[in-house]
Design a protein around this nucleic acid. Structure first.
Lengths: 236, 236
DNA sequence: GAAATACAAGAGCAGTGCTCTCTTTTGTGA
DNA sequence: TCACAAAAGAGAGCACTGCTCTTGTATTTC
C-alpha cells in the first residue's frame, strides 16, 4: 500500500468528525429550505442531532460560518444545474443553450426559494462576502461568458452608438480574462445586462414584487428570453 | 369654531401619542439605516427613548408591524424620488425621462442601501407582503407604465416574432388598467423587462454580486440605460 | 367627582448566539 | 504498555431578543 493520502480519515474519530460535519450541514440545509435563513438556529440543529448546542461549536466556529457553508453549497448547486443545462444542448445551438440556462436558473430558484434568497437576496453576513464563496458564485457567470465568446458580434441588434467607455472596456476585458476567453466587448456588455435582467426577473417573481400581476409568470419569462435571444442576434 | 375634525388630536394625550409614534418611527429608521433590518430591535429603540420595552407595544403591536411601517416609508421615499426625477424633465423628452428615472432609482438605492435591501432584497415578513405596502410599492411601476403609454410602438427595435401569449396579453392589459392608460402591449412587455433589468442591476451592484468586477459600475449602468433607450426606439 | 380608559413600568417566559469549565473518550509517542 | 495530550461532549451561565401579564398611575369622559 502507498502512503496514506491526506483527505482520508486518520482514524475512527476523524471519520466520525467528517460524518458529523456532513450531518450538521444536511440538517442546516433542511431547516433553511423549510424556514429560511433568518430562522436558522444552532440550538435547533443541536437538538435534532441530540447534542448540546455548545458541542456544535467544535465543528462550526459560529452561526455565520454555518451560513457561509450553506451559501457555498447553494451557489454550487445552482452552478451545477446551469452547467448541466448548458451541456445538454448542442454546442452550436447558442439560442438553445442560452434559453436552457435561463430556464435552469428560474427553475432552480423556484424549487429552492430560500436558498435563492440566501445567495441573491439581501446579504446577511455584512457587505463583504467571504472569499471562499466567490469561486462557487462565479460559475453561472462563467457559463454565460462562455456563450458570449461564441456569439458573432455582427448579428448584434444593438451596438453602442458611441465607443465603449474606456473604464467599462477595461472591466469587460478583465471579465474575458477571468473566463479565459475573448468575447466581443459589445456582446459581453449586452450579456452582463441580460444577466442582470435574468436575476432581476427571478427575484421579482420570487420576492413578490410583481404582486400577482404576472401570475403565472411563465409567458412573460419566455417572452423575455426570446427577446434576449433576438438582441444577441441568435434567432434563425 | 366648527366641529372638531377626526384627525386632530383629542387632547394632550393624543398629541403626545402622535409625537411618540413619529419618534419611534424616526429612531427605527435611523437604526435601520445604520445596521440593517436584521439588527432592528424593539428593546434598543425603547432604550433610546428612555421607555420600558413593553411600553412600545402600545404603539406597534409587533416588531413586524414596525418593519412594515419602515417598508412603506422606504417605498414612498423611493417612489417620490422617482416621481420627482421624472417631473423635472420635459414631458416630450421620453428618453430623458426614462434615463432620469433609472438614475433616480440607482442613486436612491446607493444612498439608502439598507432601505433598498429591505424592500427589494429577500422578504423578511414571509412571502405575502402586507396589503398596506402595495400602494406605495407600485409608485415606481406606475411612473414607468406612464412613460410606456407615451412611446410610439412603431419605433420599437424588437417586436415579438410571434403573437403575444394570450395570458401575457391579458396580464399586460390589467397593468394598463391599473395605471389608467392604454400603452401598446409590446412596449409594455419590453418595459417590464427593462424594469426587471434596472432593479436586477442595482441589486447586483449593492449586494456585491459583481464582486468588484464592475467597480465603479457607472459606465456599465449608463451603457445599459442607453441601450434600453435604443430598444424603446427613443434615441434621436 | 366617579368611572372608564390609556399609559408606563417591571417581572417573567421562552428563545437566541456564544463562552467557560469540567469530565470523558480517543489517539499517540516514549 | 502506559502516560500524556488532544479532542469531544455536557452543562451552566451571560447577555440579548420578542412578547405577555400584572400592577400602579395618569388622563379623559360622563
Amino acid at each position: 500500500m502507498g502512503p496514506m493520502t491526506d483527505d482520508e480519515p486518520h482514524g475512527v474519530r476523524a471519520r466520525a468528525r467528517a460524518e458529523l460535519l456532513r450531518d450538521v450541514s444536511r440538517i442546516a440545509r433542511s431547516h433553511l429550505a423549510e424556514s429560511g435563513a433568518a430562522a436558522l438556529s444552532v440550538r435547533a440543529i443541536a437538538r435534532e442531532l441530540g447534542l448540546a448546542s455548545s458541542a456544535l461549536y467544535r465543528y462550526y466556529p459560529s452561526r455565520d460560518a454555518l451560513l457561509t457553508r450553506l451559501i457555498i453549497d447553494s451557489y454550487d448547486e445552482l452552478g451545477a444545474a446551469v452547467e448541466d443545462a448548458d451541456a445538454e444542448v448542442d454546442r452550436s445551438d447558442l439560442a438553445g443553450r442560452f434559453s436552457a440556462i435561463c430556464h435552469a436558473v428560474r427553475d432552480w430558484a423556484r424549487a429552492n426559494p430560500h436558498e435563492y434568497a440566501l445567495i441573491y437576496g439581501s446579504p446577511v453576513l455584512g457587505y463583504a462576502a467571504p472569499d471562499d464563496t466567490i469561486g462557487s458564485a462565479l460559475r453561472v457567470a462563467l457559463v454565460l461568458i462562455g456563450i458570449a465568446a461564441d456569439i458573432d458580434p455582427d448579428g448584434l441588434l444593438l451596438r453602442s452608438r458611441v465607443p465603449l467607455d474606456p473604464t467599462l472596456a477595461e472591466q469587460l476585458r478583465a471579465a474575458n480574462a477571468l473566463a479565459g476567453v475573448d468575447a466581443d466587448l459589445d456582446v459581453l456588455a449586452l450579456g452582463v445586462e441580460l444577466w442582470s435582467q435574468l436575476f432581476g426577473f427571478v427575484s421579482f417573481e420570487l420576492f413578490g414584487t410583481f404582486h400577482n400581476s404576472f401570475e403565472p409568470a411563465d409567458a412573460l419569462f419566455d417572452h423575455q428570453v426570446d427577446r434576449a435571444i433576438q438582441a444577441f442576434g441568435l434567432s434563425r
